[in-house]
């Protein structure tokens, strides 16, 4: 059979790369944006599995090859889940901001304490 159109593949690559890049930022809002972009990316990849442009999977309106409904259903579920979780992440970001007056993801204190402990060790 055939491969999916390469345009969509490029779109997926860009979405994933950008999403990952945003995810790796210190600013929480950008992390949230990253999750949103990655959500789109995942949905596009589900679309990709349907290898050709076809008609909507509505039995009444059309005759001819219909697009694959299952990835669509899964993408729909995924969209909604991403939406729910994103709102939570936003609430969390708000909370971080309430506490810290900035929206950066702070490093773990205890980890840094352990890291600091080791320093005299090394110099000795």
């Amino acid at each position: 059979m055939s491969a999916p159109g390469f345009t969509l593949v490029v779109v997926a690559a860009v979405l994933y790369s950008s999403g990952f890049y945003l995810l790796l930022q210190r600013s929480l809002m950008r992390v949230v944006f990253g999750i949103l972009v990655l959500g789109h990316a995942a949905n596009v990849s589900l679309m990709l599995t349907d290898r050709a442009i076809t008609l909507p999977p509505l039995l009444t309106e059309h005759e001819g090859p219909l697009s694959d409904p299952l990835p669509q259903a899964m993408a729909l579920t995924a969209i909604v889940i991403t939406f729910g979780v994103t709102t939570f992440l936003l609430a969390l970001a708000y909370r971080v901001w309430l506490g810290d007056e900035n929206d950066e993801v702070p490093a773990d204190l205890e980890d840094r304490r352990i890291g600091r402990l080791a320093e005299p060790e090394d110099s000795a």
Partner: peptide, 17 residues
């Protein structure tokens, strides 16, 4: 549930703030 979610979020992130 969808209505509940949105209302809840608007209440929390909008109104509360």
């Amino acid at each position: 549930i969808v209505v509940g979610l949105v209302l809840s979020v608007v209440a929390a992130l909008g109104a509360r703030m």
